[in-house]
Structures are given as structure tokens and as C-alpha cells.
Write a protein that binds this DNA or RNA. Sequence first.
DNA 1: AATGAATGAGTATTCATTCAT
DNA 2: GATGAATGAATACTCATTCAT
Lengths: 228, 228, 228, 228
Amino acid sequence: MGSESGTECTAAEPHDRVDEAVRAARFSSRRRQLLDAAVRVMERTGYHRMSMQSLADEARVSVGLIYTYFGGKQDVLLATVIDILEAFRDRLEPAMTAAGDDPIDRFVAGFRRYAEIIDENRDAALLTYRESRTLTAEGRARIKELEVTTSAPLRSALVEAVDAGVIAECDVDLVTYDALLLAHGWALKHWRFGGRFGVDQYARAQLRLLLGGLIVPEQRDRYARLLA
Amino acid sequence: MGSESGTECTAAEPHDRVDEAVRAARFSSRRRQLLDAAVRVMERTGYHRMSMQSLADEARVSVGLIYTYFGGKQDVLLATVIDILEAFRDRLEPAMTAAGDDPIDRFVAGFRRYAEIIDENRDAALLTYRESRTLTAEGRARIKELEVTTSAPLRSALVEAVDAGVIAECDVDLVTYDALLLAHGWALKHWRFGGRFGVDQYARAQLRLLLGGLIVPEQRDRYARLLA
Amino acid sequence: MGSESGTECTAAEPHDRVDEAVRAARFSSRRRQLLDAAVRVMERTGYHRMSMQSLADEARVSVGLIYTYFGGKQDVLLATVIDILEAFRDRLEPAMTAAGDDPIDRFVAGFRRYAEIIDENRDAALLTYRESRTLTAEGRARIKELEVTTSAPLRSALVEAVDAGVIAECDVDLVTYDALLLAHGWALKHWRFGGRFGVDQYARAQLRLLLGGLIVPEQRDRYARLLA
Amino acid sequence: MGSESGTECTAAEPHDRVDEAVRAARFSSRRRQLLDAAVRVMERTGYHRMSMQSLADEARVSVGLIYTYFGGKQDVLLATVIDILEAFRDRLEPAMTAAGDDPIDRFVAGFRRYAEIIDENRDAALLTYRESRTLTAEGRARIKELEVTTSAPLRSALVEAVDAGVIAECDVDLVTYDALLLAHGWALKHWRFGGRFGVDQYARAQLRLLLGGLIVPEQRDRYARLLA
DNA sequence: AATGAATGAGTATTCATTCAT
DNA sequence: GATGAATGAATACTCATTCAT
């Protein structure tokens, strides 16, 4: 607390700062632990069947502790969904940047990475669809915002491609959304297509469909490898 | 069944047949009444927040009566989802048949009708996505089956189109599924695109995307009106 | 419900009326049963320690049923307190009327009856004091109102006595309140005085104190039996 | 006690005595700080709604610290009530002594001071009534004892007055209790009379009532100023 | 067939208390 | 002495389901 020492206040501050940092780190790691447990439980049982007790058990903590880190059950859901969406956001751009300057290449890389992430978190990815109704209007608004942010890089690539005359004029918002929807389709219907092929093939097939009609005839040869 | 009539035994049979028919009709109409009420309540509150009491209130019956027509709350959900899917199934084929012999025309008509039905029952259409986890494995299996049946006409049209060499070789199951998914997209993101355009335009845009890359170059002129 | 019979609707109505009456009676008796149980439990444990389960057990019903008759735990408290106050209100006036026309006699009779009722429900009578803070502002307002209504006959008797010149000018509201307070004192300190004397003597002693200073010297002889 | 000092054994004693005094003072001041905070919180929310966290917040200490100074929540309540009663006890006698030798004058001074203290701590004064049920039998016994101690000076004055023939024979315990009860009435019904008059007037009115009937006719002139 | 009163298991949330630091 | 993170028992309230009428 506010120590009564007069001279050592300069030394006190960094100590407090460290203390605070340590505390913040502990707080974060607990939250992480709880969010991870929440995803696991919800994958097993869905949000509604998840009891706070089962979440506590999964995270190896007491029920009460959950309420130190989250406002309540619904807040756990919101935080979980946000956490997932942030993972998408944070991992999409690097993959696209690594793909070079060509907008189509970047779009393709982005879509692939997106599909891969979904494949890694198939059940988690579906929480957004399934439980959005459960959230408050505020929570839903927050999520819609994040969805827009997340999809921005894919959208930018499309805009560039249109500007460069590589793909035909089209409603980029709609196409971006279609891409995300088809990517989510992998999680939604994995029970049906999972046995038939892997994510890679799924992504390739969907990209062919998406881009097949969009890339202008003159550019088709250039992207033949995608359209084959 | 065991009616309490004692004296009219001989005349009973034909009478009972009529009775039975009347009874069956009443049974059906009550079920209809309840299913319609269920859809309305679930549109408002979702399945989990729907209490049997609120369902009874909406249908203007007593709670107890629901259990005469359904096995329980989950059974109401299953019946509701099945009811919706059956509506899809029953209304899809007529629309496609009316579109003539051309497989592409039939596919287009089918997709449009599908999108229209979704537009008419936007919230109901999403129940499938949202609440599938709630159902038992058996219920889910039943629904998957119905989905396949429902989509069969669209799939057939695609197969025909491939056989006729109008569209390129492709995974027809996947394309059929993509079509359904994009149609559902209208319900999923109505909040985003509903203000921008109507179902017709939405369907047209999605069809352009779907077919743009599939119709072989030689046939493009013929379907120019779709691809413009 | 709305029967489809056309001719017998005149017969239907009285039936419904009876039905409703029966239902209302059942409702009342259940409420009574629950309120009585609530008083018993609260006498034993106080309001805060009373769990809904213990209330249900005491009333020999299920927890859920309580919520059919009351809005919740706090509502049970409010209803209990109101019930007690209504008993006071309903039993006070008859006793006073029976005492004749003399305002002092009526006041004395009222105070005695009041003290008697308190003696019969010593713990219940204290709920008002103890738990008023627990109630909502609305509930408290309701109770204050009832307190005023209940004490009205006592107040009227005092006003009459002042008007008749039997007792000295004074703040009748305050004296009325003092009377009630001293009556409640019997419940509050029964542990202390209960062994020393009975309610009758308690009431007599308090009346002597209250009236001793109020009755004007000229009238003292007339009420000597009270002041002895 | 067993201090961890090892080297300074010989010099230890006087040093420890100082230490102990300092420690006791610190202990007392912390307790004071906590009791004051407790009164403030309970005035706001009542005992049951007061969480240990809110008490800690109010006192600007950690939850854990409370347990160093009190046995638990209920002990905080007991200590608070005792603290209040001790304040009454400690402030009553001086006021009465200052009033001189006349027993009536002393009683009047005592009652006035009592009412004043209640006015200063209206909510705290009610804790005794409201939460006595919450305490253990032991705690309640302790409080009853203190109440007797506190009221002793008032009682003595009455006894003297009776012995001096100034007031009529009466149950002094009861009258003492009535006096305290009427004084508490100020806190209990402040919402009703607080707007009408101040404590002074309240005390005067109640004293007139209490003494009006008790002071023997021959002495009335002498105390006319009280009975006017 | 229809009612709705009654049940009671299920569950989110709170909060006094402890204890490692 | 002091902290506050962690515990877990306690409990109000909900609601699917049953069943006597």
C-alpha cells in the first residue's frame, strides 16, 4: 500500500508495477485456463448443458473462482466466442502476408488458413452460429464487429483483385461472407465430408468454386493451378 | 380405441372408422396448432428459453395437453424441425418441375424457391443449425436423412447437367451442399444483407457465383442471362 | 373452455362461476396453509434463516408450489406481515365497539385486545420490527399504510376523549403510537416480564401509565378503577 | 508474548512492555476502524446484506484482516451492538450526575441524553432490535446484561424518587423499560415524527406522559415545568 | 380429450471463511 | 500484521413432467 517512506517512493513504484504485472499475468493465465476448459466442455455438451460445476471440474478449480474471472455463465460464453474470433483475426493476416503481393494468392492463402483454423477448432468454431441467440444484444454486437475485423484482410484482397482487373466486378462483401460461410461449412458438415476428403482438398474445391466464376477469362491461365 | 359405447356393438365398426378419421383429423390439427405455436415461440425466444408453459399459452391450450401430442420438449423441437424440412421438401420439387427440362433451369428454379422458403421462415430455418446439438443422435439422424431427401432434386439436376456436359465434372454432393449453405446464408446474415437487397437479388448473386465457374465455356452464352 | 354448445351457454356460466369460486377457495386455503407455515418457521429461525425448502417442509408441500402462490421469498415475508396486521385490524374494532360509547372504555378495550393479540402471536408480531428493512420500499409503504389503518380506532377514541374534555390536549398521533409501542413491548421483552406477570396485568400497568397523566383531574374519580 | 527476539533477553522486558502497549493500541484502533465501518455499512444495508467484502472496502482493509480482529461476521455484529450499548452506558451517567441531586431531574436528564444518543445513531440503535435474533444465545445474554447495566442509573433515579415519595409506587423495572422503549421509538418511527418535531420536543412529550401519571399530586407544582 | 395444480430435480450465483504468500 | 485468491457449502428460483379430476 501507500508506504509511509518518503525517500524510497521511487523504488516503491517499480515494485508495485512489477506486482501489478505479476498479478495481471496470473489473472490472464487463469482466464486462459478457464476459457480452454470452457471450450472443451462446450465441445462435449454444448453451452446450455454445461453447468458451472462441470466447467469448474474441467478447469480443476472451484465454482466460486469462475465468478472472479467472469461475470457469469453467459459471460463465459461471450468470452469464449471472442477468444476464438480473436484467434482467427490474429492468425489470418500473417498467413496472407506471407503469401506475397498477388491479391488472389493472398486470398487463397487466407481462405486456406481460415479453413485450417476451423479444422483445428471445429466445435469451437460452431459456437458462434449455435449460441449467438443466447447472448445479449451487446454481446452480439461485439461479435459482429469482430467478425468484420477478422474478415477485413480477405475483403481487402478481393478489392485489390477487382481494382487490378483480375476478378470481375462483384459485391465484395457478399463474396467475403460466402467465403467465410463455405469455410465454416467444413465444421458444419464435417460428419458428411470429413470421411471423403481432408481440409486441404475441401479448401481447394471451395476456392475453385468461388474463384472459378470470378476470375476474368484473360487471367485464367495464370491461376490455372487453382482452377484445375 | 376402447370406446365406452356398450349397446351399439354391431353398428360399431363403420361408425368407429368414421370416428377414427375424425379423431385423426383432430389429432393432426392439434399438432399443427402446436407446431405453429412452437415456431412462433422459438422465433421469439429460441428453444432453450421456450418454456412448456409459454408454448401452451401461445397455442391456447394447457401444458398437459402438449404431452398428449408430443413426447416432451425435445420431441417438440424435433417435430418442429422435421415439419420445416418437410415443407422444404414438398415445395421444392413442384417449383423445379414447373421450370421445364433444362437441368440448369431446374437447378436455378430450385435454388430460388429454396431461398424464398428460407426468407419466409428465416428464424425457423435457423433452428436446424442452432439446436441440432440439443437433439438425440436418433433425432439428428432423422434430420440428416430428411436433408438429403430434400436436397435430392437439386442434386439430380446437377447430375443431369454434368451428364449433359453443361457443367464441368465436380463433386455434386459438395456443390449441392454449398448451394444449400449459401441459401441458408440469407437467414444467417439477413441482418447484414437484408437492407442491401432482397431475396431475389441475393439468390441471383449466389447463383452467378455457383454456376459461374461450373458452366463450361461453350455453354456460357446460352445461360448468359444468369451470369450477367 | 369456450364450448361449442349453443343452447347450454346459460347453464355453462354458473358452472364456471362455481368452478372459479372453488378454485379461488382452494387458492386461499393453500395460501393460508403456507402463511401459517411461514409464521411457524420464522418464529423458530427468523426470516433470513428460513430456507424455501424448510418452509415447504413445514407446509408439507414442494418448494415449487410456493412460487405458485407467492412471488418469492421476500413476498412470503410481506404477505406474512400483512396477514398479521390484517388480523390486528379485523379484531380490534369489534372489541372496541363491544366496549360501549365511552371513549376511554373503548381505548382501554382496544389496547387490551391489541396486547392480547400480540400475546397470541408474540413472535409474529415482532416480524414487523425485525424484518421491515428486508422489504422493498413498496412493501414498507404498504405496511405503514396498514399500521395507520389498524391504529385508527384507537386514535379515534383518543380524539373523542380529548373533544369530550376527558383527557388533556395532546398529540394524539404520538400517544396512539406510544400505546402500540408499549403493547409491542410485551412481545419484545416477554423474556423479561413474562415470568413476572401476565398480559392482563401488563396491559393494566401500561394503561395506568398512559392514562394516568392524560385524564384530567376532574375525571379521575370516574376512572379510578383504571388508575388504581 | 513469545517474541522472536533472541539476543536481547535481558533488555527485553521493558522493551516488550512498550511493544505490547503499542500493539494493543494498534489493535484497538483497528477494531475501532472496523466497528465504525461496520456501523456505516449496516446503516446502509442492514446486517444480512452486509458482505465481509463490503465491510473490508468500507474500512479500507482486506477481507482477511477482519478475521484477525473478529471471530467472524456474527462476531462483528455482536461487537458492534456491544459498542453501541457501551456508548450509551458511558454517556448516560455523566449527564445524570450533572443534573444534580433531585431524582426526577436526574431521570429527566438521563432520558433526554438517551434520546439524544439515539438520535445521533438512529440506525445503529435499531440494530439491537432487528438483529438480536441473529446472535447466539450467549451473545444475546451479554447484550441483555449490558442493557440492564445501561439502564441502571435511570432505574436508580426512579427508585430514589419512589423512596422520596415523589412518585407513586410502581414497577420500576417496567417503567424503566418503558422509558427506554419510548426513547427507541424515536428511531423506530423517525420517518413519521421526524418531520413533526425534534428530539427535544419528542423527549419532552414522552417525559410528560411518563411522569404525568407517576408524580404524586402534592409534587406536581414542583415539576410543573415538566408537565406543562 | 383436456386441464392445471403439484412435484422436485437441477443450477446459477453468492459469500463467509481460510491460508499461502 | 496484512493481503486477496481460492474454496465450496448454501440456497432461491425455474421448469419439464406427471396425474387426479
